[in-house]
Design a protein around this nucleic acid. Structure first.
Lengths: 203, 203
DNA sequence: CCATGTGAATGCGTTCACAGCC
DNA sequence: GGCTGTGAACGCATTCACATGG
């Protein structure tokens, strides 16, 4: 059953959120279509990429389906994460309570300002930036939230890559240059607004 | 020249960020390939969707290229935006300085807690949630940053749609149900981490 | 000669249509 | 009857290959 296509992965991830919020114990592909806009064909094809008995003829058991997605996509294993750049956004994430429930553990924060590292109150250990390589390697941190300004984003990304990071969520408006074995997800609010703008009907 | 394919729009948006940061006045498609990972073929095809004389034989003038993208995607016109939900994230965006430079004006903030609306310090006018419809219609607000908890995201989205909003950036882990003429962009940090997880080599 | 631009070929994801099952 | 699952058809985006221009 080969590799799962990228768009399918993306939909399956969103589907788990739908399953969490739908409040039902069984759903059919048509119900999902009605709520998400994806055709029931697409949804069934997506689900057929998963393994296991998921349907008993009509409808999918919500719990099993959710579990199957999480297991197929490798979401079950806990992942160690760090926050790089402790400005307004970065320090917000240090205190954000939503990570644990999905198995993500923020275990370190980094900032180039030693002063800030010492002053900030935080539930996770903070380090000056020059310790990034050592700490990431030592704790086997896999993922990073990159919250530094655009001007220093590439430099920080280079350090993360050198330390063996596997994936980066990039909050800076910069297009990062990383090797093929490192995945980057760009999350910049203004770019999302621009993406919306680009889809508005032009008059 | 026909409609621009979705993936091309996405790349062109990221390309402008690259152009802003590359520090050169002329770039070739191969240079872009080396930095972004997209093939030079793809990039030239993308650029061919734009209109105007962009190349003089070798390389693109960075400024003209950036301008052409912005104009073709309709990014030049200023857009009115609002923030819905003034918790930690929402109030951070009220004070975020990066919107203006790209022509986005945050002109209203909404929260269901009247108390919070009265107490919060903010550079933009705040309103209680029940005024959403009226204010959005009156000021012709086109885009919304939806920063409410997952549990109330759909309800808030319904109100936005009823008020005539054109696009929503959804920060809640909820899959929103909106009519086809409204675009939604989902931006949830934990989902980005999950997307990275799903792409890590499974052992 | 190197870089752009573009019709043609390829490949991949979506859509279709129907067989199988409860 | 309604729903799932899947091979086959389709369509669109990427890739290729080459003609064009400085």
């Amino acid at each position: 059953m080969g590799v799962i296509p990228e768009p399918t992965i993306e939909r399956l991830l969103l589907l788990t959120r739908f399953l969490e919020n739908c409040g039902k114990t069984v759903v059919t592909s048509s119900e999902i279509e009605a709520r998400t806009g994806w055709s029931s064909n697409t949804i069934r094809k997506d689900i057929s990429c998963l393994s296991g008995e998921l349907s008993s003829g009509n409808g999918y058991a919500v719990d099993s389906l959710k579990a199957a997605i999480e297991s197929s996509l490798g979401l079950k294993e806990p992942r160690k994460c760090c926050v790089v750049g402790l400005g307004r956004l970065g320090s917000a994430y240090l205190n954000f309570p939503g990570f644990e429930a999905d198995g993500f553990n923020i275990i370190a924060g980094f900032d180039s300002s030693v002063n800030r590292v010492e002053i900030l109150q935080s539930p996770v250990t903070l380090y000056p930036a020059f310790k990034m390589g050592e700490v990431i390697t030592r704790f086997k941190i896999e993922l990073a939230l990159l919250c530094v300004p655009a001007a220093t984003a590439q430099i920080a990304a280079d350090k993360l890559v050198a330390a063996g990071i596997k994936g980066i969520v990039n909050f800076a408006p910069a297009s990062l240059h990383v090797p093929a074995n490192v995945t980057v997800r760009n999350v910049y609010v203004v770019d999302e607004l621009r993406a919306l703008s680009a889809r508005l009907p032009k008059e």
